[in-house]
């Protein structure tokens, strides 16, 4: 049985233009005929720019929004009528809303959540210990939630969503404000939990870097329509979007000399600060390490930053590569 199954899932909102007597009613389609099937144990990155319909999808999957048309099944349940039953089997993290008790030390949120889920201590305590270890919460468990850094709080939120060992974990833009260490921490823990328990993961984001190395499958929506469904590698291939590596060097290099040692698929994008800072654009065919090695052969590397392609660029690439109707109608299961 699929853990998520939607057919022609559509949602319209009523929007009003103008004000007073001249106010006109207009239907806005936030999600347009989404067909999505996710099997247990998958890790799916649900990508789209802001306003593309991601949150609308999540709301319908979790039962807090009624679809305008089409069907949706989550964990085999019809989400809205069985919202409470479903809530025992899913864990949701909303990046900007807290599920923790703001004025209490972080550690105190967990017995409360366990009580809400009616979990006896014998069943939640071992799970809690695993979460504290895996997400490294130990150092700030005693601090009130309102005093935590965003990264710490977000790790707490993830732990809160996982406490009742849900079958499906939904992370809705969880990495807003996550620092690099927290991000990696969360990523590693989720990967392990998935391997051990077969948890399904759905992660929505507008930032491709969030889902890389965590999600094997990428689903991209744009203006409420599915525009891509396939593996990360196929997404990179289909979009051919370039990543950008910015490197600061100890001594200046000459542009031409550097370009001659770069691997194929990598180009010198810019040279700044009198040759002490170089920007290199490269495609998915080569790794950042290869680019770095090439530069390091010419000059000592001091500092570096890697920029992933923006989701807007990816979507644009998807449209220019193939007509969107083809992309949307591609059967999701054959592509990976």
């Amino acid at each position: 049985m699929a853990i998520i199954e939607t057919r022609g899932l559509t949602r319209d909102y009523v929007a009003y233009d103008g004000s007073g007597l001249r106010r006109t009613r207009r239907l806005v389609r936030a999600l347009d005929g989404l067909d999505l099937r996710v099997e247990p144990g998958e890790a799916v990155g649900y990508l789209g720019a802001n306003g593309s319909g991601k949150s609308t999808t999540i709301k319908m999957l979790t039962g807090i929004l009624v679809p305008s048309s089409g069907s949706v099944r989550t964990c085999g349940l019809d989400p809205v009528p069985s919202r409470r039953q479903l809530s025992k089997r899913i864990g949701v993290v909303f990046g900007q809303r807290s599920a923790l008790w703001w004025d209490l030390p972080l550690v105190e949120s967990f017995p409360i959540l366990a009580a809400i889920h009616r979990l006896p201590e014998a069943s939640w305590r071992p799970r809690f210990d695993t979460l504290v270890d895996g997400l490294e919460l130990g150092a700030f468990l005693e601090r009130p939630v309102r005093n935590l850094s965003l990264g710490q709080r977000m790790r707490g939120e993830v732990a809160a969503a996982l406490l009742h060992s849900p079958d499906l974990v939904v992370l809705d833009e969880p990495t807003i404000g996550l620092d690099m260490i927290s991000k990696d921490n969360v990523r590693r823990f989720l990967a392990r939990d998935r391997a051990e328990r077969g948890t399904t993961l759905l992660l929505t984001t507008h930032d491709l870097a969030d889902v890389q190395r965590l999600c094997g499958r990428m689903v991209v929506i744009d203006s409420g329509r599915l525009v891509f469904d396939g593996t990360e590698a196929r997404l990179a291939e289909a979009t051919d979007a370039e990543r950008l590596l910015v490197i600061d060097l100890a001594e200046p290099v000459e542009g031409g000399a550097l370009a001659s040692v770069l691997p194929p698929g990598c180009r010198l994008d810019a040279v700044e600060a009198e040759g002490r800072r170089v920007s290199l654009a490269f495609t998915a065919a080569i790794s950042a390490a290869q680019v770095l090695a090439a530069v390091a052969s010419r000059a000592e590397v001091v500092e570096l930053a890697l920029a992933e392609p923006a989701i807007e660029d990816l979507v644009r690439q998807l449209y220019t590569r193939e007509s969107p109707t083809n992309a949307a109608s591609r059967p999701s299961r054959t592509s990976w």
Binding site: K59, R83, S87, K88, V92, F94, R97, I116
Partner: peptide, 18 residues
Amino acid sequence: RAGQLDTLLLRPTSLLLQ
């Protein structure tokens, strides 16, 4: 307004009690 109601709705107990 804060969207916090969604968090409460996604818990397996009555909204009123919460």
